[in-house]
Structure formats: C-alpha cells, structure tokens
Design a protein around this nucleic acid. Structure first.
Length: 764
DNA sequence: GCCTACATACTTTTT
DNA sequence: GTATGTAGGC
C-alpha cells in the first residue's frame, strides 16, 4: 500500500487523449466547450495554471464553465483524468458535472476524481484506513446511528439527557469536526459548559467508541483524511503529486476542515481553481466559512480572479431587485449581475409582493396563480414554491391537493432515513458485517422476539467481558444458561437466521437475499399486520428498496452508496409544481418562483438572528437573494398578517427584506381589507414597534426610500387600554387584557385569548 | 416484556 | 400537529 498510483482503477484506464508526458498542447479555439463562451467565461476556462478564483454570480453559467474547464484541462494534456480532482458539495452537482463532462469528452470523464468532499475522502481513506485506527471494512454511521451512539456514551457517563440534549452535544461535536478539531484540540473556551463542562471528554469517548466499532461518522471522513495527511508525509506527498489540478465548486460553502484539506493538496502544484459566490453562502450553520472565499487572494499568492456577472437567467427587474437586496450586506467581494439576455420590455414583469390575511389565504393565492399560469399553457414543472422552513409546505400541499394540482415536495423525510428502510438496512449490515453492533441493537428485537432490555443487557455485558462484537457474544451466550429459556430460544433463532443469510451472501443475488431476509425475519409481515395508516406505504418502500438494491454490483457496494448518498433521488416524473426549501433550491432555476412567508421571525428566521445576530441576518439575506435569483421570469413574494404556529395564532410582521427591495422593481399589493383605509403600499396595518428584541434592526435596514420603508418610523402607541371591549371581524367581541405598543392581548368571548395588532379591532 | 396512554418538546437549513 | 419518551397496567 505504498504506491497509490499503481491502483487498479487507474491502471485500467487507457490514456484518453494520449500520454500526458508530452506536456501541454494547444487546444483549438473551436473546441466544442469553448464555443459560445463570453470573454469572462473563456478566461475562467482557459487560465489553467496557478490559483484562480472564479466569482460566479447566480445564473452566470457556472456549471458550463466548470465542465468546460475540465474538458480543457484534459484536452490540453496538462493532466490525465485521474490527476484532476473536482470537488462538489452535493451528490447531485457531482452527477450533473460528470454527465456534462462526459458529453464533451466521452467516457474518460469516468476517470476523473470527481465527487463530494465526503465521497472523495472515503475513497482516499479506504486506501489507508489503518493509519487512523480503522480496519479496511470500516462502516459509516448515519445521523441516527451517531446520535444513538452518543446517547449510549452519555448514559455510561451519567449525563442527564434532559439538561444536556444529545442532539445539542452532537451538534457541538460536529461543529468541532467541521473546524478540524480533534478532541485534544478543542479549547476550554470552545467547549463551554455543555454537558457540565464535560463535552470534550464525551467527544473523546465517542471517538473511542466509534473506533472500537470500526466505524466513523460523516465528519470523520474529512477529519481522518486530514489526520492522515498531517501524520504521514509520504502519503500526503503521493496525493499532492497525483492531483495536479484541483477544481472546487461552491467554494463559499467550504468549512475549515475542507479548506485545510484543499490547501494541503494544492501545496505541490498550486493549480487550484475555486468557483463560488460569496452572496450565496448559506451554510454557515453547518460550519461553512464565508471567510474562505473572502480570503482566497491572501491564501493563494498570485491568485487571479475572474468575475462572471452576466446573468443568462433572469429578467432585469429580478436582477435589480436581487442586487438591491444583497447590497444591504457588508463585507462582500462585490459583484453586480448584469442582464446577459435580451428581454422584451413588454413582457417583463416587476416582482410582485402581496400581503394576505393568513397562511390559508396565502396558499390560495399561490395556487390560484399557479392555475392561471397553467391555463396559459405553462408547465407546472416550471414553477416552484420556495419556503424558508419545512413546516410551511403543509398549507400549500393541502391547497394543491384540494385543487388537484400535481406537486412534488423535495426534501422532507428522506428515503433512507425512514424507519422501515433503516431497519431493513440494519439487517443487511449485520449480514454483511457481523461486527456491526449498532445494527444488531437496532433489529435484534424488531419484529418483537421477546428480547427486551434485560436480555439485551446480558448480551452487552457478555460482549464487554469477553471483548466480542454483540452478535458473536449472543451466539456464545445462548450456549450458556445465563438467559432464561424463552429469550434464549428467541436469541438462538435470531443468531441462526443471520448465520444462514450470511452463508448465502456470496451466492444469492443481493436483491433476492434482501427479499428473503425481509420475509424470513418476519419484518414485512410485521408491517403488513400493522393497521396504522402509513403501514402499507412502508411495505411499498421496502419493495422499492429491494429493487434499488438490484441495481448495484454487490450488497457491499449498495451499503456504501447508501451511507454517502442520503439524498432522495427524487425522480422527476410528470409535470408537477415543486415545493422545497430555499436551501434545497440553490443551483436550480424556474420560470416562476413563489416566495411565501416573508415575515419577521420566519424569514429572516428568528433562530438565525438569535444565534448569529447580524451575521445571521446577512445569511438570511443571502438566502433571500438565492430565492430571487432562482427565477427566470416571475417572482411572487407573499406574507401573511396572521399565522398559526403549532396551534396558536400569531400576528406577523412583514419581513424587513420587503422594504429592502428597490421600489422601481416591485409592485406591492395587499388583499382587500387588510389595511384599514390605506393604499396597498401602506404598511400602517403592521407594527413597526418591535414586539420583541431581535427586530431592532428594522428601521436600520429600511433606510431605502419608498412608501414601504418610510411608513415604519411613525407609529402611535395603541389607543386601547386593558379592560376595553373590542370587536374583531373574525374573532368576534372580546376584552383587552394587555397592551404593548400597538399589540394587544385580547380575550375573545368565543375565540380564546389572542395576540394581535390594534388596527384589526375596533372599540365597541 | 409489552402495550397503551399520556406528556413533552420540538421544527432551519444537510453531506 | 408531530414524534418521541415515560409511566403504569397487564
């Protein structure tokens, strides 16, 4: 294992364009990937040597540039395909890039080292697992297993899971990993007082536990490779030598660990090209460091910068609105999107904003608009509803179902995260690798076999005493009289089942094996007998799993794929409206984009502001920018005056972002009756007095001119006093309980206690 | 050991 | 409104 160049996958690849040894050759300017590029794009594709930062605004042809650059690299014979490293952020982006490169240069595209950070790290780690204390067949835990493992550690350490939420600790550990901090590198100040000041200790124990399970979690994939690189000069050197050219997509989303990884790899050849857009950095909560892109020039001396600013996607109004909005952020690299397309002024619409009464009205408005467009012959798949948070999808789904408009929700509970799929996978994992203790635990009593806590405790105890994996411990334990006859019999049967399935692992096709396991274990039968309304769907999912497995070379290959690709390969079947989160929409585009819920505390999201203050606000603004720039032709932004959260009605304030949109690009509307006697642009129906702290920025950030922005500064306190009798259109009569600014707490005679703005009620 | 009923807290975004 | 965890009865 000393010569990573002599590995079979490389040896098998024939020289695609001819031997690399000959050195660079000129690429004809009429190469298919160079045709039709604008001057900036051309520069980004043809400046191949040395560090290069491509600042690529939304809709400026980024993917085109990335793929053309890879083709150019290979065609110029600067590097063989397997000497090019191309890193993306999502599996989807990786797949798309590979497909598009293949369309340009043919199947040699398959020899590129192209993938997500995680999949590439896994590939590297598989070649040197022992260096980080793992055996070659180590497994990767998903989020669920990670959490269960951490809970076990916390139990053993007698940490109260109520005062320290396991998810909170897990989050902290993950953030440390994002920052490339192994337990010994976490400072006391970073550790804080989480878990009674023992967070680092728990982190260390968790890592030990992972190692003893021969497993690693997602963050470890990167962290282990970093550790490997830093501890073994020769290994690092060999990888540095190999990767002559590095290409990084979505650079603004890289975290510290990824950044260090890239820097190490680029140190030899210095040929690193990072593509990104600081205005679209929306993953800081996951450890992404916008500083990475802002610092590029100082990190990579001699770096050149190319700005892609010609937008080939959106209308001038959309671009101008998005630019106006994002201009409220500080510390930008600075980039102005310019229209790159001709637009017929007659057909160009302004962005619409619309105030509605509540979430239901909002859903009605959006769906009616969708139907109008549909009647004009526009495909549903060209329209998207982009929400800030998952729960917003419900009202739209209800409305779409009621009106019979086909739709698709992207995101949500993912296929491989469903309980039944994870159970089935646990069976497969245990058959594949009998040492997988977490898989054992998960399914030893699913379906119920009468093996409860007590029996499991015995197995775990025996395993620990004899230093055995759980399954092996169980196998031996049933030969003793430690367990009572009933559980002993059940456990014997379970162990034998696993052994029997394992015996045919190599000979039976993996999909058939899966079907056999699911059948013989009684697992499918369990769901078939379940009368819960979602049980039949689960049985269907299991069927789908079996057919998915058939498409892989082996069970092992399938399990590895699952571990890395937790996303839904949502097949785009039929013409459907898409509903998804703003985060999920990055990189996509639609003719018509609906942006609902532009209300304070939803968007910008309260927690973003609470946790990260102004930085959080700026990230929310970038998210808004991402949303706007998804649209080719039309944007409808809506916001409701009232919204039901859990089961309570809340009065909503319009998002401050609304006031940041340039007046000349926006047409503002409000549903009738929403603003007592005011013009549509009169926001006087809404409070400007902060109801609570985080809104302090309201006046600050609405310094732009225009009716919407100026209204907020003059707002008299409420004329109502506690005890006053009032009446409301919808809730009827009630008594004012409390007054805060112009916000009232009112006990309605028939509708309970509600909080609302005084202008919605009149004195009795 | 299992089941049920009840309470609870939780909802940002994901490789 | 949901998913998860807990307590108590069988």
């Amino acid at each position: 294992m000393t010569d990573p160049f002599a590995l079979d996958d490389d040896a098998a690849s024939p020289p695609p364009f001819s031997p690399a040894a000959a050195g660079p050759v000129p690429v004809p300017p009429d190469a298919p990937w160079l045709v039709g590029l604008n001057p900036e794009q051309l520069a980004a594709v043809t400046i191949l040597d040395g560090p290069l930062l491509v600042l690529s605004g939304a809709g400026t042809g980024k993917t085109k540039v990335l793929t053309a650059r890879l083709a150019q690299l290979m065609a110029s014979r600067r590097a063989q395909p397997w000497q090019c490293l191309a890193v993306t952020f999502t599996n989807r982006a990786a797949r798309e890039m590979r497909e598009r490169v293949a369309a340009l240069v043919g199947p040699v595209a398959n020899d590129l080292w192209l993938g997500t950070f995680h999949s590439l790290c896994l590939k590297i780690l598989r070649r040197h697992p022992e260096a980080v204390g793992l055996a070659s067949d180590f497994t990767i835990l998903d989020a669920d297993d990670q959490l269960r493992l951490l809970k076990r550690v916390m139990e053993d350490e007698r940490i109260d899971p109520k005062s320290t939420l396991p998810q909170a600790l897990m989050g902290a550990i993950q953030r440390w990993k994002d920052q490339a901090l192994t337990p010994d590198k976490v400072s006391t100040s970073q550790a804080g007082d989480l878990a009674g000041g023992r967070a680092v200790q728990l982190y260390r124990l968790y890592q030990q536990r992972l190692r003893s399970l021969n497993a690693c979690d997602f963050g470890d994939l990167l962290l282990h490779v970093l550790t490997l690189f830093l501890s073994d000069e020769a290994v690092l050197r060999s990888w540095q030598e190999r990767f002559r050219y590095l290409l990084v997509d979505e650079y603004q989303d890289t975290n510290v660990a990824q950044y260090l990884w890239l820097r190490l790899l680029a140190r030899q050849h210095h040929n690193i090209c990072c593509v990104g857009d600081d205005d679209q950095s929306i993953y800081s909560w996951r450890g992404a460091e916008i500083g990475n892109i802002l610092r590029f020039e100082s990190d990579f001396p001699g770096a050149r910068i190319v700005r892609l600013e010609r937008n080939y996607r959106s209308t001038p109004h959309i671009l101008s609105a998005a630019s106006g909005l994002i201009a409220h952020n500080g510390g930008r690299l600075g980039k102005t999107l310019r229209p790159g397309l001709e637009h017929d002024p007659e057909r160009v619409e302004k962005i619409h904003t619309r105030a509605v009464w509540d979430g239901e009205a909002e859903a009605r408005l959006v769906v009616e608009t969708i139907e109008t467009y549909q009647r004009r012959g526009e495909p549903l798949a060209s329209m998207a509803i982009l929400v800030r948070v998952g729960f917003q999808t419900r009202e739209f789904e209800e409305r779409l179902i009621a009106t019979g408009v086909p739709y698709r929700v992207i995101g949500g509970p993912r296929f491989y995260e469903r309980a039944e799929i994870r159970d089935a996978l646990a069976y497969l994992r245990l058959v594949q690798s009998p040492t997988d203790g977490l898989a054992f635990e998960r399914i030893v009593n699913v379906p119920r076999r009468g093996l409860g806590e007590a029996a499991l405790r015995e197995v775990a105890l025996y395993a620990r005493e004899h230093d055995l994996p759980l399954l092996e411990a169980a196998r031996r334990l049933v030969g003793t009289d430690i367990l009572k006859p009933k559980p002993r019999k059940a456990l014997t049967a379970f162990v034998e089942d696993i052994g029997r399935w394992r015996a045919v692992l190599g000979s039976m096709p993996q999909d058939e094996l899966t079907a056999t396991i699911l059948d013989e274990s009684g697992y499918v039968a369990m769901w078939k007998a379940d009368k819960a309304p979602d049980a039949p769907g689960r049985v269907d999912n299991l069927k789908e799993l079996v057919s998915a497995i058939a498409e892989y070379d082996s069970l092992g290959a399938f399990l590895e794929h699952v571990a890395l690709v937790m996303e839904n390969d949502a097949k785009a079947e039929g013409d459907r409206v898409v509903i998804m989160t703003l985060h999920g929409a990055k990189g996509l585009e639609f003719d018509s984009v609906f942006l609902p819920g532009w209300e304070e505390e939803i968007f910008p999201h309260l927690r973003a502001l609470e946790e990260s203050g102004d930085k959080g606000l700026e990230e929310e603004r970038r998210l808004a920018y991402v949303g706007l720039t998804r649209a080719r032709r039309r944007v409808l932004i809506s916001f409701a005056a009232n919204r039901r959260v859990y089961n309570q009605w809340k009065t909503q304030l319009p998002s401050r972002f609304l006031a940041e949109l340039p007046e000349s690009d926006v047409k503002r509307e409000a549903d009738r009756g929403l603003f007592a006697g005011g013009a549509p642009t009169d926001y006087s129906g809404y409070s400007t007095q902060p109801l609570a702290e985080p809104r302090a920025n309201w006046t600050n950030s609405s310094r732009r001119t225009g009716a919407a922005a100026s209204a907020p500064s003059v707002r008299p306190a409420s004329a109502f006093k506690p005890g006053a009798r009032v009446t409301h259109d919808r809730f009827g009569d009630g008594t004012v309980l409390a007054v805060e600014g112009n916000t009232l707490r009112v006990a309605f005679d028939g509708a309970g206690i509600r909080t609302l703005i005084d202008s919605y009620v009149t004195a009795l």
